[in-house]
């Protein structure tokens, strides 16, 4: 286990040490001590690393992650795992705004709640939130899955494209062009797999599915506001 203490090491040296493993490495286990809310922690990784951050982080933790598993033993600031390509990011606490924004792939698990705009412009990432999510989540969501074991705030899935949303609790309101959709067996299967990989024992049958009505797909004056 490699240990980097941010009380003694600069952010630059810490990220450089992790990024130096990009490609292939046999030093896969890393621990980051004293993050103390630092921004841009463990960003741009591209190796099968196992990184544990021992405490809360600021903005963009694990931004653009590829292949690595990053676990945060605490809460994260805005934009955790933004534009993630692959790998896994696990947040043991809560996440601020824009969690998983524009993510292309991989799995983001948030054990607490996520604030507004969770999964905004997501492009293939899977996001599982054990708690609730805030307003405008999955705005313009293109691809991937957003699973919410708690409640969703206002305007869920506004202007959504092909992402699939699953919510167990209440949805305050749906955004433009987002509708409830039938939960078919293939959706239950996919949902069960996502819940399992996120360590949730929630019953897939208790969820509702939401997605695009596809009425905004072609520019039409009746769709303008």
């Amino acid at each position: 286990m490699q240990v980097i203490d941010l009380a003694e090491t600069t952010l630059r040296d810490m990220n450089a040490a992790l990024q130096a493993q990009n490609g292939s490495t046999n030093q896969t286990a890393w621990q980051i001590l004293n993050p103390r809310g630092a921004h841009a922690l463990a960003v741009g990784l591209d190796a099968p690393l196992d990184v544990t951050v021992a405490g809360p982080t600021g903005y963009y933790c694990a931004g653009m992650n590829a292949r690595a598993t990053v676990r945060v033993a605490g809460s994260v600031g805005p934009g955790v795992a933004e534009n993630m390509m692959s790998g896994t990011v696990i947040v043991e606490g809560d996440a601020s705004q824009y969690a998983g924004a524009t993510g292309h792939g991989g799995l983001l698990v948030i054990h607490g709640n996520a604030a507004s705009r969770c999964g905004i412009s997501m492009k293939g990432i899977d996001i599982v939130v054990h708690g609730n999510i805030g307003h405008m989540s999955a705005f313009m969501a293109q691809k991937g899955h957003l699973v919410v074991c708690g409640d969703a705030g206002e305007a869920l899935g506004d202007s959504i494209y092909e992402a699939q949303l699953f919510v167990r609790g209440s949805v305050k309101s749906l955004g433009a062009d987002c509708i409830e959709k039938e939960m078919r067996p293939e959706h239950l299967t996919a949902l069960a797999k996502l819940l399992e990989s996120a360590g949730s024992d929630a019953d897939p049958a208790g969820f509702r599915r939401y997605g695009s009505a596809r009425r905004l797909y072609h520019f039409d004056i009746d769709n303008a506001y």
């Binding site: 841009a40 960003v43 903005y59 824009y98 524009t102 412009s121 202007s159 494209y161 092909e162 072609h218």
Partner: peptide, 30 residues
């Protein structure tokens, strides 16, 4: 663009994960 072929594609007018200049400073750091 990770979207279906043949549909109109809107590009957002604001960035999805930062709002003001204070955020932009952190985005640039990232």
């Amino acid at each position: 663009r990770d979207l279906p072929a043949g549909i109109d594609q809107r590009s957002a007018c604001r960035h999805p994960d930062w709002t003001g200049p204070d955020d932009l400073e952190i985005k640039i750091l990232e």
